[in-house]
Design a protein around this nucleic acid. Structure first.
Lengths: 196, 196, 196, 196
DNA sequence: AATGAATGAGCATTCATTCAT
DNA sequence: GATGAATGAATGCTCATTCAT
């Protein structure tokens, strides 16, 4: 959708295992608790192999983030085929809620990595991986006549990310009922309150 | 407001200095980068003194969180005097936006500590420090006739926390104009779309 | 003689052991082959203890160097009581030959540490530990009427250090005969060729 | 002059590049900072290629040393044509001063490699690369009637090497004036004080 | 002959924690 | 109450070396 396609199939098996293992571990644990030792052990490769492919742990983390957004692109690809902006936004909320509440580590991971980057790099990461999504959703909000479409898009993203975080804090798996209720509320308030 | 009062004045100066220093450092830096060594140096107390008052670093972090929410209580205390629920919610959004966008470290810190706690402890922390606020805001939403007041309250909190996080990722200080726009959108989204 | 006295007796036993062990190891082995692991093991202290006293391996190495020059000061202290500059120079050569040929690692160690320091620090180290000696010897050469006393002092130091290095390369312990011959040559050429 | 001729032209380009790159890097950096990775990258050959030609890093370093002394032979070759031993020695001092003060890495490199070799190998290296030069200069000293020609030769070498080392420590580029003064002093010290 | 992926031992350093004083 | 010396496990990272191709 927004990022260049990544030929996952071409990756060397060792690299493949490193990326997959790192992703799984980074998403569900604090960055500092995921040591390269742990990754190498779980991935069944030597620690040296990690450094053969990545210059540093930070580099690996960044690669994992990009890789994840590539995968997200596929999940969101069906949005493009929806012509009606209101329907497209509903679909976006539906997909995001599902992704955010089932696999809630991405925002947390992003936040933590950002805390280790300098301003320049963090901004760059934001613009590379998040801004394209934001722009797209803002355009849809503009089409349905929202006053500040970019601000509203950001608030929607914030709410979606935030909800995942709250469930993480509560250690409460969202039920189908929860998701249904969030969905109804979100659609009701973010999409219906347009023509003020 | 929601938490037991803490007799700050009674605190021993050493303890006082530890808590204040730890708070300042934890809020603006990654948990792992704030070593007890650093805290003890900046606070001008010995490392041993920290362990005299807290059983572990985690314990200190938890104490800092509680202490911060006590201070937040004061900031939100004026909410109580507002009778009109709609006005009270507007005030809440206004205060939270200001706090969240000027000093955005709290949610990040909470999230990071949570990542180090087991399910039981994280849930307990959530219920002690966040749930009371959520309940209060949910009650206000109920008063203005919202369908799922608790879900809406959570979505509002999520949006407010999330916005701070996005500005952190972007490394972009929110301008007065930004805050104004967020405020208008939030009010429009969360307060105007009541009577469906 | 040139450096402030160091109250060795006041040193904590742990620090004492670290310094002594590091000195012994650094003087007879390549810097990189002397790991902190090795030092801590041979000294019978924990690795952490080293970092309790020194911020880095480089810091420890620098401390060892200063410590050694303090000890050298004691060896050279008798020079001060000699009034006749020619006799003083002879004594200096005698002491230096003995020290340089029996314990020949100092120059090598100095050279290697210097290679790891930036220009500023290396120059500073030179001026702190070597320059005072050079100045003193240059003054003695001036007194006996040498044309370029500072250059000659440096050449004498260079010859004395260099001889130690050559014996190190040859792995040849200098015999009493060797020392006697070097002494005669040095005195003959550096002290007799004055009045050109 | 002293070493067997090396048919540089016959060397395979890969080997040629490895040797040249390694020499440049070893002469200006600490042995441990010059990794095979670095050499292979700078030389534009694979790491495996290095191991194709040399059994180990140490082996490569030794080869570089031999190669360098072959090149030095060319620099000193004009000495042979000088019949007057005093003139030959002056020429030797002049060349050595120039080489030692402009490119002072050789002695340091030799010393460092020696620190990693066992006694046997270091002695062998000394005898192969340095001893021939020493013998030659000692013979010249003998011709001008010096008492201990071999000791004096060694002291001259030591002074020449040592001077380079001092300039390295001081991080002070020798000026034309410095070289002139050193030259005058060295001639005065080592050549004028013959007839005791 | 030459590549470069992969290894694993080793390194300097960090840090929460303990404990004698 | 308070100090700070001492510990030792763990971490990110380097690097010479091996080996299948």
């Amino acid at each position: 959708m927004f990022l260049l396609p990544l030929e996952n199939n071409d990756l060397k098996p060792t690299l493949r295992r490193i990326l997959d293992t790192a992703e799984k571990l980074f998403l569900s644990n604090d960055y500092h608790l995921v040591s390269l030792n742990l990754i190498s052990k779980k991935a069944g490769v030597s620690k040296g192999a990690i450094f053969h492919y990545f210059a540093s742990k930070e580099d690996l983390a960044l690669a994992v983030i990009k890789n994840m957004f590539h995968k997200l692109d596929e999940q969101y690809s069906e949005l493009f085929e929806i012509k009606d902006p209101r329907k497209a936004l509903e679909k976006f909320i539906e997909i995001s809620l599902f992704l955010g509440l089932t696999e809630n580590g991405l925002s947390r991971f992003l936040l933590q990595i950002s805390g280790r980057l300098d301003a320049e790099k963090s901004k760059k990461m934001f613009q590379e991986v998040l801004e394209p999504y934001l722009q797209h959703i803002a355009k849809l909000f503009a089409e349905i006549g929202v006053d500040h479409p970019y601000y509203r898009a950001k608030l929607l993203f914030a709410a979606l990310d935030g909800i995942g975080m709250y469930h993480f804090l509560e250690r409460k798996q969202a039920t189908a009922k929860d998701i249904q209720n969030y969905f109804e509320e979100l659609v009701s308030i973010y999409l219906e309150s347009t023509n003020k």
